[in-house]
Nucleic acid binder design. Structure first.
Lengths: 328, 328
DNA sequence: ACTCCCCTTTACATCGTGGTAAAACCCTGT
DNA sequence: ACAGGGTTTTACCACGATGTAAAGGGGAGT
């Protein structure tokens, strides 16, 4: 900036004024400065600006893995939405690891972003209540519970119920669930399982604990593995509710490998409506979660809290709806 | 920082020294300062540090869409690798739009990151040669051509040839390709098509232009649409080389819809080996690109160039290998 | 010619850190 | 008691930008 100022024979502040479209600059001066800005290839450095303004213009997104289709999609929406607001997105991955999550919740060792959108998996919700930093934080996902933190959640009990009811309504009697984990259940698992049992009960079906299958994590392979085990013990299953779509995709692949026809022999329903669900064979029925809502709500909360840190915490729930395709 | 200094009764610089583990600080002073750092919840602000040090510790990743499985995967690897080096990743999306790409190549309106990893789609390679800014840039993908820019590319001609040869070797005669675009061919398209024709010719097969199908973009739906059109005109196809995996996934889904059995009636091979390829029905054969190599190479180039901006541009090629699964 | 007022431009200070160099302190040996 | 040398702490400034307030310029009205 100094170089431009010297070259144009004006003060640095005038260059600043031109770059920022300050009103009271003589057109000739403006043109002159613009020319040297162009000629010297000057770009304002975010850092100086940020230091002066107290805002970085960046928001951090912390998720278990940016390569999980649901989060990849969410990130894409967020980056676009942030861009419209003149913001940049910094991505952090926790792998669901509790220490990494603690680090993130504590506001990173070094403060980088104006705000944080955080999808925790392992941290006890209680710990999330009182972050010691003043960076606004919005939780996404079921993990926040009733904690006094801004947060966008899903109605996962209802999601589970909707899926199970749908399967029951289409005449299935032995409806398994894939995606629970006994020893360290996450809220999202608990809620979807609770909904699943509610759905079964509402349809007059018994809940057989043996049909609730644990997985080490929510990915395609664990979904397939769970089906291997499930079919070995209970060959009579006629439907599977997978706690999310990547699990369901593993489930579909394993069923195909075992020669079970979908949906004739076994119906499958997932959750999330990730893009690839439309293209599985058969196309996956799923409970779609409104990701655009999540992103907009999160950004809105952040904006509001940046404007007024004293705001009481809010808790919004993203809409969902059953999308029936070919798998059940 | 000032608050901590006052509370501890030392100078700000001493606080800085403690935070940065400077050697010559009395243990008691260190402990004292640490206590107040803890008590007041002080975290160093990246911005001040960056201003002083001249580095932000952030690298930008600019891709067409972070939700495309290949790039989502790449981003995940990059975020992890960057983290190990104490760096953060800022994500930017271009949607393949040329104006957005120009903006990115010009160094953004505002300089934010120390370096840029950029996967251009639409910009003429010539424009990429002389970025007017001094931020190190590494191109990933085929788009850089012979341009004098650091860049990690793929051997896409060979990738196309490997795929086509494999299909021909398994006895296929009418091998179509999905993923070209006549009017605005991207280098990656041209190369994979060139390899495809080379593969056919090497196997003594004729190249039928009618079997080379255009798509508006590389996604699942366009892949499916291309198959609809292809089968209508040329029902005798017995193999399809899809220019990448998401196209191939659309192809598989459309083939299934048309009642063609894979691989019995039609064999399919994609490119990328995205995670979902393992779980399609049937599992997708593909040419895997070593993404970890891409990430490591890009980071290495960036590190080297930050250390010595005068380095001559380098050009590395990521390894690939054919992964034969069930689809062909 | 002089005032007044508005339009332009500038000097100065500051945001939070950390490099530099100097000051303050402490201990040892004479 | 004092020089000498190492350790610990501090003052000062600069990084790049911009808000503030004041200075400089120019034209209209008297």
């Amino acid at each position: 900036m100094r170089d431009v100022a010297i070259a144009a024979g004006v003060s640095p502040k005038t260059v600043s004024n031109v770059v920022n479209d300050y009103v009271h600059v003589r057109p000739e001066t403006r043109a002159l400065v613009r020319r040297y800005v162009e000629e010297l290839g000057y770009r304002p450095q975010a850092v100086g600006r940020q230091l002066r303004r107290g805002r970085t213009g960046a928001i951090a997104l912390a998720v278990p893995g940016i390569d999980m289709p649901y989060f990849a999609d969410l990130a894409a929406l967020l980056v676009s939405a942030a861009r419209e607001r003149g913001l940049t997105v910094v991505v952090e991955q926790t792998d669901g690891d509790i220490e990494r999550e603690r680090e993130v919740a504590a506001g990173f060792p070094v403060r980088f972003a104006d705000a944080l959108i955080f999808s925790p998996l392992s941290m006890p919700p209680s710990e999330l209540e009182a972050p010691r930093h003043d960076t606004p934080m919005v939780l996404i996902g079921e993990h926040g519970g009733a904690a006094a933190v801004d947060h966008v959640t899903n109605a996962s009990v209802d999601i589970g119920a909707v899926a199970a009811s749908h399967l029951a309504a289409s005449g299935r009697r032995r409806i398994a669930m894939v995606g629970y984990k006994e020893n360290r259940p996450k809220p999202v698992m608990e809620q979807r399982m609770l909904g699943y049992t509610q759905g079964l009960r509402a349809a007059g079906l018994p809940v057989d604990r043996a049909l609730i299958r644990a997985v080490p994590e929510w990915d395609r392979q664990p979904g397939a593995d769970a089906v291997d085990a499930l079919l070995a013990e209970h060959p009579d299953v006629d439907a599977i509710f997978a706690a999310n779509d990547v699990l369901a995709i593993g489930v579909l692949s394993a069923l195909h490998r075992h020669g079970r026809r979908v949906p004739d022999d076994v119906a499958v329903v997932g959750v999330d409506d990730v893009p690839e669900s439309r293209f599985t064979t058969p196309a996956l029925s799923t409970v779609a979660i409104d990701r655009a809502f999540v992103v907009e709500a999160a950004l809105e909360m952040i904006t509001a809290r940046l404007a007024d840190p004293g705001l009481p915490p809010r808790n919004l729930t993203a809409p969902h709806r059953l999308v029936v395709r070919d798998s059940g």
